[in-house]
């Protein structure tokens, strides 16, 4: 990977961090409704993963989707506008925090029912295989989703039909407040891939370079027809499950320990230690991200609410 790409990763990760921090403030100010799940701590996962895809590769994820949306190229303006339910939001104010998508950027959505998007991911991959296209479907989900039936039906079907899917488990150790050990028969999620005859790998999700390298290799292997694979990316969310999480299930010391491996810090150190760039350049990138988020909030604040007369738009694709 060249230096420009590395600096772009840094920009994307800072942009997501700032977006999420600002989102939390807007939520607390009552300007964002519903449930909101922040990606803070996990930025390296989707940045490295999506950074390794080709334009024809589809991305689909769960409800912790703001960062994924940014990495797929959706402007922060449209992400924040969606959070605020505005007509200019990426889903026109119909979806909210958990339901962002942009098919023009091959982002097939944030999905809010745990595991329910995995069978759909198999279908997206079937679409490419049927049509003879070489796209890979990258399906992200939390480790908690591997305990529900959707997961097992979807990964089984994908293997039986040799569908071009890369299954990406973001193991942040908690399904809401329940640790992986209390919810999953095996705490190493990659072991579940064994049961379906899939190649798998465990990856350090706090290091964007490690995520990128493993993702690149896995995506190209899937593209070459070697069948679906699984990555288990080890990560940690620094904030609660959602904005309404009292965090009684974990100790602050544990959070602090993981914060020492902050993925932004890991990349920052890498860039400086390897003399890729200077502190000044990184500060300039941070400033650019700050400004983009500030402008995005201004854009969203100034954007109109969807008209009440549009309530019934798009229930069906065809007139009824």
């Amino acid at each position: 990977m060249d230096n420009a790409n590395l600096l772009d990763f840094y920009y994307q990760m800072v942009l997501i961090r700032r977006l999420e921090e600002r989102g939390a403030e807007l939520y607390q100010a009552g300007k964002i409704g519903g449930f909101m799940h922040l990606y803070i701590g996990q930025e390296a996962v989707s940045t490295g993963l999506i950074g390794a895809r080709q334009p024809q590769d589809r991305v689909i994820t769960a409800y912790r989707d703001h960062g994924v949306a940014i990495n797929c190229g959706i402007p922060a303006n449209e992400v924040i506008a969606e959070l605020m339910g505005k007509a200019t939001g990426i889903s026109q104010g119909r979806g909210g925090s958990m339901h962002m998508a942009d098919r023009t950027r091959n982002f097939w959505g944030g999905h809010a029912i745990v595991g329910a998007h995995l069978p759909i991911a198999a279908g997206l991959a079937l679409g490419d295989k049927y049509a003879g296209r070489d796209g890979v479907t990258i399906c992200m989900f939390g480790e908690g989703a591997t305990n529900i039936g959707f997961f097992h039906e979807a990964v089984n079907l994908a293997k039986v039909w040799n569908l071009p899917v890369l299954w990406v488990c973001e193991n942040n150790r908690y399904g809401m407040g329940t640790t992986v050990e209390r919810a999953s028969a095996v705490s190493e999620i990659q072991q579940k891939a064994e049961g379906y005859g899939m190649v798998h790998e465990r990856v350090d999700g706090m290091n964007v370079l490690a995520v990128y390298d493993a993702s690149k290799k896995a995506i190209e292997a899937v593209r070459n027809g070697s069948g679906p694979r699984m990555l288990e990316i080890m990560t940690y969310r620094f904030r609660g499950h959602s904005m309404g999480d009292p965090e009684r299930y974990r100790k602050q010391a544990e959070v602090k320990k993981w914060e020492e491996q902050d993925p932004l810090g890991v990349l920052h150190n890498h860039l400086i230690e390897n003399q890729v760039t200077s502190i000044e350049v990184l500060e300039e990138i941070e400033e650019r991200a700050n400004l983009a988020i500030q402008k995005a909030v201004e854009f969203a604040e100034a954007s109109p609410e969807p008209g009440l007369d549009t309530l019934f738009n798009n229930i069906y694709a065809e007139e009824v």
């Binding site: 097939w108 069978p119 991911a121 198999a122 279908g123 679409g127 049927y130 049509a131 079907l157 039986v160």
Partner: peptide
């Protein structure tokens, strides 16, 4: 397979791609 969720999910996803 005898897996209704996979059947409908695969149908939904492939329909979204234009099939």
């Amino acid at each position: 397979p005898i897996a209704e969720t996979a059947i409908i999910g695969a149908a939904i996803g492939s329909a979204m791609t234009g099939l």
